[in-house]
Amino acid sequence: MEIMRLVVTGPVGAGKSTFIRSVSEIEVVDTDRRATDETLMLKKRTTVAFDFGRLQFGPEMALHLYGTPGQSRFDFMWDILIRKAHAYILLVAAHRPHEFRSARRILGFMKQRSQIPMIIGLTHTDCPGAWDAENIAIALGYLDANRCPPIITVNPNQSASVAEAVIALVQHSMQGCLV
């Protein structure tokens, strides 16, 4: 089985859980089947502290999505998640400048530990008071447009929009260091 692991991170309320829910299709696994790693995985699913989603798109091909834990504590779980991930998306609620500093804190953590490809997804752009992408980039510390990661708009409640965001992330990582 070939698996690509994507991490979905961002401040609380950015839309991580909704994003993962919109894209994944976790089917019920026949428990009579021999106990593969996967069934074990599903049984323990409810006990873990982060969101997990899966999208199987071929007999031997699956996409796994992991949402970082809600609290702002950066524990070992974060470390495991990013070390095993191929790429990540940072979700930022465009209408909540209150959280920009927290998004920056997450970026600081991620950049320090991992060089994997990443993009930024702006959520809540449909809400009043939403900042535009150019200004959010500045608020997140990306002052040079040439050195800024791709910034896209995504509505986690719409699965088509989430699919587009995942395409953007996958395509960005194809240009990067994956292959």
Binding site: I3, M4, R5, D37, K44, H64, I80, K84, V170
Partner: peptide
């Protein structure tokens, strides 16, 4: 966490055809 114990310690490259 169980989801991750199946994964290798480091992310291994996925193939072009997969992507």
């Amino acid at each position: 966490p169980a989801e991750l114990s199946v994964a290798p310690t480091e992310a291994s490259a996925v193939s072009q055809s997969f992507l």
